[in-house]
């Protein structure tokens, strides 16, 4: 049973089961894959859709680390429902990049990517210009966060310094945003339904499983940021902010 993040004298600490750490790490890897695919698409060097849709390849094959990470996930990889789930998570079944233009300023058609790389203005022209200037560095910083989070998830217990905690939190949030997009969470009622689904116990479908992961990562993030809020000094701020 996992124990939540709490502040200690040496940073934030959470005791997670090894399979929980592995699942979170794999989710981070899948979001990295999704962002890297976007990079390939906008740079005009994307994989053909036939390739990305091949049934034989789990998403992490693109990263070239298939065996190392997958070997301990399932006894029978070919028959694992998780493979299907992770392909779905990474948007590999959703016709990624169908509308991508050569200049790369078109917003992503995939809902999870669109949520991670949102429009910066309600004016489409301004949003496109902003995207052209800022999207690639945003993708890079997200990928760096997610990689750092994977590294942190290798330690037991998971221990984060004050500097590492926000990075881990951002990565965890990107995982949650991706899961939420895949689960179709669009309002508070949808989110509540997902939490109820997660509370029902043993996951029978891909969506059940995603719901459980969403609830778990939400709980983990809530405990981390509640702990982090405790330690921000509130010195003269309240006096200075009179507006």
């Amino acid at each position: 049973m996992a124990r939540a993040f709490r502040a200690t004298t040496r940073g934030y600490k959470a005791d997670l089961e090894s399979h929980e750490r592995r699942l979170l790490s794999q989710l981070c890897a899948d979001v990295i894959t999704m962002l890297e695919q976007r990079t390939q698409e906008v740079s005009g060097d994307r994989l053909s859709r036939e390739e990305t849709r091949s049934d034989a390849e789990p998403p992490e094959a693109i990263e070239g680390t298939t065996n190392r990470r997958f070997a301990d996930t399932a006894q029978e990889p070919g028959d694992d429902p998780f493979v299907h789930f992770r392909r779905e998570l990474a948007g590999l079944g959703a016709g990624l990049g169908e509308e991508t233009e050569a200049d790369g300023v078109v917003p992503p058609s995939d809902p999870a990517l669109a949520r991670l790389l949102p429009e910066a203005s309600s004016d489409p022209e301004e949003a496109a210009q902003f995207r052209r200037l800022a999207e690639s560095s945003l993708r890079e910083s997200k990928i760096a966060d997610l990689r750092a989070a994977r590294l942190a998830l290798e330690s037991d217990p998971v221990t984060l310094t004050e500097e590492q905690a926000p990075v881990f939190g951002r990565a965890l949030n990107d995982v949650r945003l991706t899961l939420a997009a895949r689960l179709g969470i669009e309002d508070e009622a949808d989110a509540e339904q997902v939490h109820q689904r997660a509370g029902r116990g043993r996951a029978a479908t891909t969506d059940d499983f995603m719901a459980e992961l969403y609830a778990f990562s939400t709980w983990l993030q809530e405990t981390l940021f509640s702990a982090m809020l405790e330690v921000i000094p509130d010195a003269e701020g309240d006096v200075a902010d009179q507006d």
Binding site: A134, R170, N173
Partner: peptide, 13 residues
Amino acid sequence: VTAMHGYGLQATI
């Protein structure tokens, strides 16, 4: 705005 996007918040200018 870019920083907010980095944190996963929906932000516009």
